[in-house]
C-alpha cells in the first residue's frame, strides 16, 4: 500500500464547493431553472403565434388521440401512428443489430479481406446522408429488387444505424480481456461458442448504455420516412395538419409523444443497468 492510497482511503471530507456551484447544482434549483426556461420558450412561442394571429385550437387535438363514437372507443391517428413508428423502429433496430454484429465480427475476424469489407461498408454508410440513403433504397434499389416503401424504409434505417451499432458492439467485445478468450480456447471452445457463452454475455454491460442512445436516435430518425409517405407518427401528423391546418398544436403534440417515448426508454434502461450492475 502506498502512503497515497492510505491517506486517500482515510479520506478527509471533500473540500466545500463554492457557493454558486452548490446553489446551481442542487436539485430544486435545477428543476426550477429548467421549468423557467421551458416556460419562457412556451411563452415565446405562444406570444409569437398570437402576434401572427394564429388561432389556437387545442380543443380539437384530443380527437386525434382517441374518440368515443357510437360504435364505441377507438384510438386516434396519433397513437396508431406511434404504434407504427415503434414497429418500424423495432424491426429496423433488430436488422441493424444483425448487420452491425456481422460487420463487427468481420472487422474482428483478423482476416484482411473481412476487415477491408467492413471498413469499406462503414465509410460508405457514414458518408451518405440519411435522406439520400432513403432515396437510394426507395427510388433505385426498390424498383430493381421489387420491394415496397415500407421495406425500403426498414432497410434504410437498419443500414444507416448498423454503422454505429457495429462500432458499439466492437468496442464492447474489445472491452473483454484477452484472458477470457484464452481460457475459453483452452477448454476447447470454438470462436462461435466463445462469443455466445463467454464474450457477448459479458459485453452486454458495456453495450447497454450506448445501444439505448442508438435506439433513441433510430426512433427519432425514423421520422424521415414520412418523406416517402410510409405510415408512421410523423406522416400521420402531416396528414392531420393538411386536413385541419393546426400545425402548431399537432407538431407540439407529436414532439411531445417522441419525447415521452424516448424518455421512458432511457429511464427503463438505466433501471436495467442498475439491476445488472448489482447482479454481477
Amino acid at each position: 500500500m502506498s502512503d497515497l492510497g492510505i491517506s486517500r482511503s482515510r479520506g478527509q471530507a471533500l473540500p466545500k464547493l463554492p457557493f454558486h456551484k452548490r446553489f446551481f447544482g442542487s436539485v430544486p434549483v435545477s428543476v426550477a431553472i429548467y421549468a423557467i426556461i421551458v416556460g419562457l420558450i412556451a411563452y415565446g412561442a405562444y406570444t409569437g403565434a398570437q402576434g401572427m394571429g394564429y388561432n389556437w385550437q387545442w380543443y380539437r387535438v384530443p380527437q386525434f388521440l382517441y374518440r368515443n363514437t357510437e360504435v364505441g372507443f377507438e384510438w386516434g391517428e396519433i397513437p396508431i401512428g406511434l404504434v407504427a413508428t415503434i414497429k418500424l423502429s423495432v424491426t429496423a433496430f433488430l436488422l441493424a443489430t444483425a448487420i452491425g454484429l456481422l460487420v463487427a465480427l468481420l472487422r474482428l475476424s483478423g482476416l484482411v479481406i473481412g476487415a477491408a469489407v467492413a471498413v469499406g461498408y462503414l465509410e460508405l454508410i457514414r458518408n451518405i446522408p440519411l435522406l439520400v440513403l432513403l432515396y437510394l433504397f426507395y427510388y433505385v434499389l426498390g424498383p430493381i429488387f421489387g420491394f415496397d416503401r415500407y421495406f425500403a424504409s426498414i432497410l434504410t434505417l437498419a443500414v444507416f444505424h448498423s454503422a454505429l451499432i457495429s462500432e458499439i458492439l466492437r468496442a464492447g467485445i474489445n472491452a473483454i480481456p484477452a484472458g477470457q478468450w484464452e481460457a475459453a480456447k483452452s477448454i476447447g471452445m470454438s470462436p462461435y461458442q466463445t462469443y455466445l457463452y463467454i464474450i457477448l454475455p459479458q459485453s452486454v454491460r458495456f453495450m447497454l448504455p450506448p445501444m439505448t442512445g442508438e435506439v433513441v436516435h433510430l426512433i427519432k430518425s425514423s421520422a424521415i420516412v414520412s418523406v416517402i409517405a410510409v405510415a408512421e407518427l410523423t406522416t400521420f401528423g402531416r396528414n392531420i395538419i393538411s386536413d385541419t391546418y393546426m400545425s402548431f398544436e399537432i407538431w407540439f403534440t407529436i414532439a411531445l409523444v417522441y419525447l415521452v417515448v424516448t424518455l421512458i426508454l432511457s429511464i427503463g434502461v438505466s433501471h436495467l443497468e442498475k439491476k445488472y450492475a448489482v447482479d454481477q
Partner: peptide, 29 residues
C-alpha cells in the same frame, strides 16, 4: 480443438468466467 480438450491450462490470472457461478464455470466446457 480436440487437442485442447486433452490439455488443460491454468493461468497466472485465473481467467475464470466472471459472469458464471463457480459451478457454471466448471460445467460450461
Amino acid at each position: 480443438r480436440e487437442l485442447r480438450q486433452e490439455v488443460g491450462m491454468v493461468f497466472q490470472q485465473f481467467n475464470l468466467f466472471p459472469h458464471l457461478t463457480v459451478l457454471e464455470n466448471l460445467m460450461i466446457g
